[in-house]
Amino acid sequence: MTVSPSTVESSVAQEPVAPAGAVVHSIGIAGMCVVKAPDKVRTVLGSCIGVAMYDRVAKIGGMGHVILPDSTEGTGDPAKFADTAVDLLLEQLVEAGGVRARVAAKIVGGAAMFGDERAGGLGRRNAESVTARLAHHKIRLAASAVGGQRGRKMLLDPASGMVQVEIIGETPDTI
Protein backbone atom coordinates (compact mmCIF):
# COMPACT_ATOMS: atom_id res chain seq x y z
CA MET A 1 0.00 0.00 0.00
CA THR A 2 1.16 3.52 -0.66
CA VAL A 3 2.36 5.15 2.47
CA SER A 4 4.34 8.32 2.42
CA PRO A 5 7.53 7.25 4.24
CA SER A 6 8.33 10.71 5.48
CA THR A 7 5.06 10.96 7.34
CA VAL A 8 4.74 7.49 8.81
CA GLU A 9 5.52 7.56 12.47
CA SER A 10 5.50 3.87 13.17
CA SER A 11 4.25 0.79 11.45
CA VAL A 12 4.31 -1.64 14.33
CA ALA A 13 1.11 -3.39 15.27
CA GLN A 14 0.60 -2.64 18.96
CA GLU A 15 -2.74 -4.32 19.74
CA PRO A 16 -4.75 -7.09 18.08
CA VAL A 17 -7.07 -4.59 16.39
CA ALA A 18 -6.36 -5.68 12.82
CA PRO A 19 -6.62 -9.02 11.03
CA ALA A 20 -3.52 -11.21 10.80
CA GLY A 21 -0.98 -9.72 8.42
CA ALA A 22 -2.49 -6.27 8.73
CA VAL A 23 -0.56 -3.43 10.23
CA VAL A 24 -1.80 -0.66 12.49
CA HIS A 25 0.17 2.46 11.64
CA SER A 26 0.59 4.96 14.48
CA ILE A 27 1.14 8.61 13.73
CA GLY A 28 2.59 11.16 16.12
CA ILE A 29 1.91 14.84 16.55
CA ALA A 30 1.85 16.54 13.13
CA GLY A 31 2.13 13.12 11.51
CA MET A 32 0.21 11.88 8.47
CA CYS A 33 -0.29 8.48 6.90
CA VAL A 34 -2.39 6.88 4.13
CA VAL A 35 -3.13 3.13 4.21
CA LYS A 36 -5.15 0.49 2.37
CA ALA A 37 -7.31 -2.13 4.15
CA PRO A 38 -6.73 -4.37 6.00
CA ASP A 39 -4.16 -1.93 7.46
CA LYS A 40 -5.46 0.68 9.88
CA VAL A 41 -4.13 3.98 11.16
CA ARG A 42 -4.36 5.52 14.59
CA THR A 43 -3.20 8.36 16.79
CA VAL A 44 -3.61 9.79 20.30
CA LEU A 45 -5.15 13.24 20.63
CA GLY A 46 -5.49 15.86 23.31
CA SER A 47 -6.12 19.39 22.12
CA CYS A 48 -5.04 18.60 18.56
CA ILE A 49 -7.46 17.47 15.87
CA GLY A 50 -7.23 14.12 14.15
CA VAL A 51 -8.69 14.27 10.67
CA ALA A 52 -9.51 11.00 8.94
CA MET A 53 -10.43 10.75 5.24
CA TYR A 54 -11.41 7.58 3.45
CA ASP A 55 -12.82 6.09 0.29
CA ARG A 56 -14.84 3.06 1.38
CA VAL A 57 -15.10 1.65 -2.11
CA ALA A 58 -11.35 1.72 -2.74
CA LYS A 59 -10.83 0.80 0.95
CA ILE A 60 -8.21 3.48 1.25
CA GLY A 61 -7.97 5.89 4.17
CA GLY A 62 -5.61 8.33 5.79
CA MET A 63 -5.20 10.34 8.93
CA GLY A 64 -3.48 13.58 9.93
CA HIS A 65 -2.71 14.88 13.44
CA VAL A 66 -3.26 18.63 13.14
CA ILE A 67 -1.73 20.89 15.75
CA LEU A 68 -2.35 24.46 14.52
CA PRO A 69 -5.24 26.08 12.65
CA ASP A 70 -3.64 28.29 10.03
CA SER A 71 -0.50 27.87 7.90
CA THR A 72 -0.20 31.63 7.47
CA GLU A 73 0.55 31.93 11.19
CA GLY A 74 3.70 29.80 11.19
CA THR A 75 6.30 27.88 9.22
CA GLY A 76 7.35 24.26 8.84
CA ASP A 77 5.79 20.94 7.90
CA PRO A 78 2.41 21.46 6.14
CA ALA A 79 1.03 18.47 8.08
CA LYS A 80 1.07 20.65 11.24
CA PHE A 81 -1.56 23.11 10.01
CA ALA A 82 -5.26 22.43 9.54
CA ASP A 83 -5.57 24.01 6.09
CA THR A 84 -2.44 22.55 4.49
CA ALA A 85 -2.85 19.19 6.25
CA VAL A 86 -6.33 18.71 4.71
CA ASP A 87 -4.93 19.61 1.27
CA LEU A 88 -2.00 17.23 1.69
CA LEU A 89 -4.04 14.33 3.03
CA LEU A 90 -6.57 14.62 0.21
CA GLU A 91 -3.76 14.74 -2.35
CA GLN A 92 -2.08 11.63 -0.88
CA LEU A 93 -5.39 9.78 -0.70
CA VAL A 94 -6.11 10.44 -4.39
CA GLU A 95 -2.53 9.54 -5.34
CA ALA A 96 -2.99 6.22 -3.53
CA GLY A 97 -6.09 5.39 -5.58
CA GLY A 98 -8.93 7.08 -3.72
CA VAL A 99 -11.64 8.76 -5.77
CA ARG A 100 -12.13 12.32 -4.68
CA ALA A 101 -15.92 12.31 -5.18
CA ARG A 102 -16.25 9.34 -2.80
CA VAL A 103 -14.02 10.70 -0.04
CA ALA A 104 -15.62 11.48 3.31
CA ALA A 105 -14.04 12.74 6.56
CA LYS A 106 -14.34 12.40 10.33
CA ILE A 107 -12.67 14.54 12.97
CA VAL A 108 -11.74 13.84 16.61
CA GLY A 109 -9.96 15.72 19.43
CA GLY A 110 -9.83 19.38 20.42
CA ALA A 111 -10.04 18.80 24.20
CA ALA A 112 -9.10 21.39 26.83
CA MET A 113 -6.72 19.00 28.57
CA PHE A 114 -5.87 21.08 31.63
CA GLY A 115 -9.18 22.90 31.63
CA ASP A 116 -7.18 25.57 29.85
CA GLU A 117 -9.49 27.84 27.88
CA ARG A 118 -6.67 29.02 25.66
CA ALA A 119 -5.69 25.50 24.54
CA GLY A 120 -9.37 24.56 24.35
CA GLY A 121 -9.91 27.64 22.21
CA LEU A 122 -7.06 26.61 19.93
CA GLY A 123 -8.57 23.12 19.72
CA ARG A 124 -11.89 24.64 18.66
CA ARG A 125 -10.13 26.81 16.09
CA ASN A 126 -8.36 23.72 14.74
CA ALA A 127 -11.69 21.93 14.43
CA GLU A 128 -13.29 24.93 12.70
CA SER A 129 -10.36 25.34 10.36
CA VAL A 130 -10.36 21.64 9.37
CA THR A 131 -14.13 21.78 8.83
CA ALA A 132 -13.84 24.89 6.68
CA ARG A 133 -11.07 23.38 4.57
CA LEU A 134 -13.06 20.18 4.06
CA ALA A 135 -16.00 22.29 2.92
CA HIS A 136 -13.68 24.18 0.57
CA HIS A 137 -12.82 20.85 -1.08
CA LYS A 138 -16.49 19.74 -0.89
CA ILE A 139 -15.53 16.78 1.29
CA ARG A 140 -18.42 15.52 3.42
CA LEU A 141 -17.83 15.64 7.18
CA ALA A 142 -19.53 12.41 8.20
CA ALA A 143 -19.00 12.57 11.97
CA SER A 144 -17.05 14.30 14.69
CA ALA A 145 -16.12 13.83 18.35
CA VAL A 146 -14.53 17.05 19.55
CA GLY A 147 -14.26 19.14 22.74
CA GLY A 148 -14.42 18.04 26.36
CA GLN A 149 -11.48 17.71 28.71
CA ARG A 150 -10.22 14.18 28.00
CA GLY A 151 -7.71 12.74 25.56
CA ARG A 152 -8.84 10.30 22.89
CA LYS A 153 -7.43 7.37 20.95
CA MET A 154 -8.56 7.45 17.31
CA LEU A 155 -8.43 4.42 15.03
CA LEU A 156 -9.51 4.47 11.36
CA ASP A 157 -10.49 1.32 9.50
CA PRO A 158 -10.42 2.26 5.78
CA ALA A 159 -12.40 -0.87 4.86
CA SER A 160 -15.53 0.53 6.53
CA GLY A 161 -14.68 4.18 7.15
CA MET A 162 -15.46 3.53 10.81
CA VAL A 163 -13.46 5.44 13.38
CA GLN A 164 -13.11 4.03 16.87
CA VAL A 165 -12.81 6.71 19.56
CA GLU A 166 -11.67 5.70 23.02
CA ILE A 167 -11.39 7.76 26.18
CA ILE A 168 -9.36 6.20 29.03
CA GLY A 169 -11.66 4.31 31.42
CA GLU A 170 -14.68 4.47 29.08
CA THR A 171 -16.14 2.05 26.57
CA PRO A 172 -14.91 2.88 23.05
CA ASP A 173 -17.37 4.59 20.68
CA THR A 174 -17.49 4.10 16.96
CA ILE A 175 -18.39 7.05 14.76
Binding site: I29, G46, C48, L68, M113
Partner: peptide, 17 residues
Protein backbone atom coordinates in the same frame (compact mmCIF):
# COMPACT_ATOMS: atom_id res chain seq x y z
CA UNK B 1 -4.59 10.92 30.62
CA UNK B 2 -2.49 9.52 27.79
CA UNK B 3 0.97 11.08 27.44
CA UNK B 4 0.50 12.27 23.88
CA UNK B 5 -2.88 13.82 24.71
CA UNK B 6 -1.31 15.70 27.62
CA UNK B 7 1.54 17.04 25.50
CA UNK B 8 -0.78 18.14 22.65
CA UNK B 9 -1.86 21.48 24.15
CA UNK B 10 1.66 22.34 25.28
CA UNK B 11 3.05 21.77 21.82
CA UNK B 12 0.40 23.97 20.22
CA UNK B 13 2.21 26.95 21.68
CA UNK B 14 5.62 25.78 20.57
CA UNK B 15 5.06 24.23 17.17
CA UNK B 16 4.25 27.33 15.13
CA UNK B 17 7.72 27.79 13.69
Amino acid sequence: DMACAILDPLLMDLAGF
